[in-house]
Design a protein around this nucleic acid. Sequence first.
DNA 1: TCTTTGTATCCGCATATGCGGATAAGGTCA
DNA 2: TGACCTTATCCGCATATGCGGATACAAAGA
Lengths: 120, 120
Amino acid sequence: MKKTAHLFKALSEEIRLRILALLQDGELCVCDLMAVLELPQSTVSRHLTYLRHAGLVEGERRGVWMYYRLLDSGDPLARDLLRLLAGHLPLFEIIRQDRQALADYLADKKHNRCNEGANR
Amino acid sequence: MKKTAHLFKALSEEIRLRILALLQDGELCVCDLMAVLELPQSTVSRHLTYLRHAGLVEGERRGVWMYYRLLDSGDPLARDLLRLLAGHLPLFEIIRQDRQALADYLADKKHNRCNEGANR
DNA sequence: TCTTTGTATCCGCATATGCGGATAAGGTCA
DNA sequence: TGACCTTATCCGCATATGCGGATACAAAGA
């Protein structure tokens, strides 16, 4: 029960909802999120840790990078919530803007310092 | 978007989840909830106000009493969340205990000081 | 009007959480 | 190993939220 309350608390911050929305398009590493959300690294990392503890995302280290993705194998409530958010979040203007910013960022190879496909 | 975050914050406290579960069986007044949850009046009232501001419940005054019920006509996300909770909350032991306590309380007419059917 | 009952709000205090710079830790490559 | 990059955690501070007794407000009846 406390776990459930904690799950909702994880969803009760706008930044975390924006992160979840960005991850709906696929996994991202911390520096991708830093670039798109224009937030300091410690802030992004902290929120990702929060989401991970709530069972909403999982992280995988690949080389120097930590890739985060939505965790569909969580408990049933978490899974239902992620499904619900997938339907509702895209209706918000700021979410659409974030997705556009992500698309622009990914399209510009100069920025891809932390994507395995670039400069290395 | 901030409204959405606020909605989740309203669901991020165990007591508020318990209140919502009790209201799934029908409307209740503040003193009913005080009795079942064994919490002081100011605490119950404060949480109900929180839930009302989040658009999850509505209150109606009938005489001296304020009856609260789930608000199904809220925004789509709130409605979906209430539906989700209706399926998940009954799985928790404490919710079942609360519902039993409510049933006991309602069955005992001596306690019905704040129900219109009793002593008046 | 006065009293009683039920509810909402106020108050001071305690705790939880967020922030972002600073620092530590993990990983890669030369 | 040492330099460098990415990420996690620490730190002090600010704000948000919860608590529950005390008080104010609202409604009904004498």
